[in-house]
Simulated scan of single mutants.
Amino acid sequence: MRRREFIIGTGSAAIMIGAGAAGAAVPAQLPDYNMPEEFLPREVRIKNDFAPFEIHVDPGQYALYWTLPKKKAIRYSVGIGRTALYEAGEFYVGAKKEWPSWTPTPEMIERDPESYAKYKDGLPGGLNNPLGSRGLYLFQPGRGDTFLRVHGTNEPKTIGRRVSNGCARLVNDQMIELYDRVPMNSRVVLHPILTA
């Protein structure tokens, strides 16, 4: 399926509707990310007996699967957390935000003050915000917000790479489409990085 067919088939996700967070620089239309064919979402058959309507991230394939009934899923290409920062485990969607604001964690600032200290007071939502168009906030029982996210990005070159501080990222238009599918409290599994 070509990108244009995908967008048309999902209600033209590239056109933004509504306002973002206060102060957010929300575009009227997203840029065309010109993703290669292999990075476009597609329906696939899966071998696993995963329950439908869950998110499963396979870091070895740089893939996120939104599971469907009858052993099917929609496969999205993602960028994932750098090896030392990726946290495998089971989570649930505890919050959903459109054009979310972003504040680096104290650990991020400590690891790389040159990159993150200037944002210690936060950055409003918008196209140049690291969380992009949408954010699914990952929680765990007894822990609450883990500060891990499934989120958008306007940097297509980061898809298929280990680049983030532990989160999974999709280009913004694909993230909007996924966000609209995923209800609150959905199960999310970040599978482990397998080593040879």
Rank of each mutant, 00 (worst) to 15 (best):
G126S: 06
D180P: 00
N172D: 15
R181I: 00
T10G: 03
G142N: 14
A19S: 06
G94D: 09
S164F: 05
R45W: 10
P183W: 04
S115R: 14
E107F: 08
G132T: 01
G126Y: 01
P124Y: 05
E87S: 14
P36I: 05
E110A: 15
E54R: 11
G142L: 08
F53E: 12
I46F: 11
E90P: 00
N34V: 08
F147E: 10
T146M: 13
I109P: 02
T105D: 08
G20Y: 04
V57G: 00
P27Y: 05
N128T: 10
M16I: 12
E107N: 14
Y86D: 06
P104G: 04
G79N: 07
M108D: 11
A84G: 12
P104T: 06
E177A: 10
A28N: 11
R181F: 01
G132C: 03
G81F: 12
L148C: 07
I176W: 01
Q174E: 12
N185K: 13
P69V: 14
A22R: 05
R161G: 03
K157C: 04
L68C: 07
L194F: 12
P100C: 08
D32K: 04
F50L: 10
Q174N: 10
P100A: 07
A21Y: 01
R162H: 12
A196F: 11
L30F: 13
V171P: 00
P59V: 12
S77H: 04
S77P: 02
L138T: 01
E98V: 09
G152M: 02
E98T: 08
G160D: 06
I159A: 01
G9L: 11
A63C: 05
L131V: 04
G122Q: 06
Q29F: 10
V44H: 05
V26A: 01
A21Q: 11
N34A: 15
E90Q: 08
I193Q: 13
F6Y: 15
G122L: 09
P52H: 11
P113D: 14
A51W: 03
I8L: 12
G81N: 09
P59H: 06
D32F: 09
L127Y: 09
G152C: 03
T195M: 14
P124A: 07
N48M: 11
G166T: 14
A84Q: 15
R187N: 06
D173T: 06
P106F: 07
K157Q: 14
K72W: 07
K47H: 10
M175C: 09
R143A: 15
E54A: 09
V57N: 00
A88T: 13
G142W: 06
L68K: 14
L138Y: 02
P59M: 07
N172V: 02
E5R: 11
T158R: 03
A84I: 15
P156G: 04
D121N: 08
I159M: 05
I7T: 04
P106D: 09
V44L: 06
D32L: 08
P36H: 10
T195P: 00
Y137H: 08
H56Y: 11
M16W: 05
V189K: 05
Y116P: 04
V188K: 03
F53D: 09
L30R: 03
Y86K: 02
N172S: 10
R181W: 04
M35Q: 10
P41S: 08
N128E: 08
M35T: 03
N48R: 13
E38Y: 13
L85C: 07
F39Y: 12
